[in-house]
Simulated assay, not measured.
Amino acid sequence: MTEESFASSGAGAASCYPVQCSTLRKGGHVMIKGHPCKIVNLSSASPGKHGHAKIQLVGLDIFTGSRYEDSCPSKHTMSVPEVNKNEIHVLSVAHDGYISLLLENGEIRRDLKVPDNGLGKEIHDRIKQEEDIAVCILSACEQEAIIGVKKLHFDP
């Protein structure tokens, strides 16, 4: 008896699902050229004499902001990434830029860096002021990024 072997796919393929191109909408997400993107423009070109309607897509990478374009026949499928947002309580920020987060199960996570932008400065400033804050973490295709911060309000 021979054992079956299966090839694995990379680039976060398991965290995507197929969707018919004609059902995509502006503001939604789609994979364009291997990048998880938010759709910022969507237009359709009418079919030619022997062709199918084509959908023109413009998207911004949800992590880098880079612009990507693609077109697809309306009846074909495209990959849509699983995009998740989580708010997690911040404990501290280390000198090397890694942030300590308190997870719901009580464990501490220390594998994310504070962004090198205005948001990162805001996080550092709020920690110095000893505010109780949470960060919003966006995750898709085995990538994560801190995209927001907010003050926590505890009910007495």
Rank of each mutant, 00 (worst) to 15 (best):
2 T>P: 12
3 E>H: 15
4 E>N: 08
6 F>A: 12
6 F>R: 11
8 S>F: 09
9 S>M: 08
10 G>M: 09
10 G>A: 12
13 A>Y: 09
16 C>W: 01
16 C>V: 15
17 Y>A: 02
18 P>S: 14
18 P>W: 00
19 V>G: 06
20 Q>A: 14
21 C>V: 15
30 V>I: 10
30 V>K: 03
31 M>R: 05
32 I>V: 15
32 I>S: 07
32 I>N: 03
33 K>W: 09
37 C>E: 00
37 C>P: 05
38 K>H: 06
39 I>V: 10
41 N>M: 02
42 L>G: 02
43 S>L: 08
43 S>I: 03
44 S>R: 14
45 A>F: 03
53 A>L: 12
53 A>K: 09
54 K>H: 14
54 K>P: 04
55 I>P: 01
56 Q>R: 08
57 L>S: 00
57 L>V: 15
57 L>A: 11
58 V>K: 09
61 D>S: 08
61 D>M: 05
63 F>A: 10
64 T>C: 01
64 T>S: 07
65 G>V: 06
65 G>M: 06
66 S>N: 11
69 E>S: 15
70 D>M: 08
71 S>R: 11
72 C>M: 14
74 S>H: 13
74 S>Y: 13
74 S>Q: 14
79 S>A: 13
81 P>R: 01
81 P>E: 02
82 E>D: 09
83 V>F: 00
84 N>I: 12
85 K>P: 01
86 N>M: 10
88 I>C: 07
90 V>E: 13
92 S>T: 10
92 S>M: 06
92 S>G: 08
92 S>V: 04
93 V>Y: 00
94 A>V: 03
94 A>E: 15
95 H>I: 14
100 S>H: 09
102 L>T: 06
106 G>S: 11
106 G>P: 15
106 G>T: 12
107 E>V: 06
112 L>H: 04
114 V>D: 02
116 D>H: 11
117 N>L: 02
117 N>Y: 01
118 G>V: 00
119 L>A: 07
123 I>T: 04
125 D>R: 07
126 R>E: 07
127 I>V: 10
128 K>P: 01
129 Q>V: 04
129 Q>K: 10
131 E>I: 04
134 A>Y: 00
135 V>W: 01
137 I>M: 00
139 S>T: 05
140 A>I: 00
143 Q>W: 05
144 E>A: 13
144 E>C: 04
145 A>N: 02
145 A>W: 05
148 G>L: 02
151 K>E: 03
152 L>V: 13
154 F>M: 10
156 P>T: 07
